[in-house]
Amino acid sequence: MIGAREWQLIGLNNLYMNLQRLHVYDRASAMINGAAEDEARTTALRGWMDAVVAAMEPVLQGGELDQATQESLLPLVPWLRDEVARYYALHDPTAPLRDQAAFGAAHVLACDYQTKGERAIAEAVGKPEEADRLLQRVPMMMALVRQANTAVGTCAEGEPSDEVAGYITEHVRVARGDESRMLLQIGAAPVTLQGRDPRE
């Protein structure tokens, strides 16, 4: 059974992981292409991430998301949904793997943030078995993050080795498979932030 507070935390966590996706994608793309990051965009993303974390803290500690905070986050939802849709739409599966590394790495890091958030939520709402299950995923997530970082670092220096190409191919495959779920989760945020089940 998922209560109102847990739905609010799920909504906030989904927003946060997708902000991280865009942040990582921008940073990794800039690194691979030897370009500078867009400072205004980076500042906007960091500002929204800070706002989501600030909203999440009191809810993790037992409160509920107040109306004013819910409303302050609503402008983020359509913007984030459009940006994540763009991240998917601009991905070219036929491009050289070097050009796809940032796309795959962004999904890996986003999922790592989502899993960490889910574990914190399970602990906060008194679901120790769920928290333990998520804790068991930590070594796998750490390995995937290492792969993603290696892929970006290698591609920033030149062409990926066969091993790194394998990482990129797999990360991209998983990212593509998750597209509809990610966009649904962001789109559901106005409902989840109210503490309601978006499937009702």
Rank of each mutant, 00 (worst) to 15 (best):
M1W: 06
M1I: 06
R5Q: 07
E6N: 09
W7G: 01
Q8W: 06
L9V: 00
L12P: 01
N13S: 11
N14Y: 11
L15Q: 09
M17E: 13
N18L: 00
Q20C: 07
H23Q: 11
H23Y: 10
H23T: 09
D26L: 14
D26F: 12
R27Q: 15
R27N: 14
S29E: 12
A30Y: 04
M31Y: 04
M31W: 02
N33P: 05
G34R: 14
G34M: 13
A35I: 06
A36V: 13
E37S: 11
E37P: 03
E39R: 15
R41C: 00
T43N: 08
A44F: 04
L45Y: 01
L45D: 02
G47S: 11
M49R: 11
D50M: 05
V52Q: 13
A54C: 03
A54P: 01
A55K: 13
M56F: 07
M56R: 14
P58Y: 10
L60H: 04
E64R: 14
L65W: 05
D66Y: 12
Q70E: 09
S72R: 11
S72T: 05
L73M: 10
L74T: 11
L74R: 14
W79D: 14
L80Y: 02
R81H: 04
E83A: 01
V84Y: 00
A85V: 09
Y88C: 06
A89M: 10
L90A: 15
H91T: 14
D92Y: 08
T94L: 07
T94Q: 12
P96E: 15
R98K: 12
D99A: 04
Q100A: 12
A105S: 04
A105C: 02
A106C: 00
H107G: 05
A110T: 02
A110W: 01
D112G: 06
Q114R: 14
Q114D: 11
K116E: 06
K116D: 07
E118C: 10
E118S: 12
R119N: 05
R119Q: 08
A122E: 10
A124F: 03
A124H: 09
K127T: 02
E130W: 11
L135G: 15
V138I: 08
P139S: 04
M142D: 15
M142L: 15
A143T: 15
L144P: 06
V145L: 06
V145P: 02
N149Y: 03
T150M: 07
A151Y: 00
V152N: 03
T154S: 07
T154V: 06
G158S: 03
G158L: 03
E159C: 03
E159G: 03
P160S: 05
S161V: 10
A165I: 03
Y167H: 12
E170T: 13
V172S: 09
V174E: 09
D178S: 14
S180E: 09
Q185H: 06
Q185K: 09
I186D: 03
G187F: 02
A188R: 10
T192W: 02
T192C: 02
G195Y: 00
D197N: 12
P198H: 01
E200Q: 14
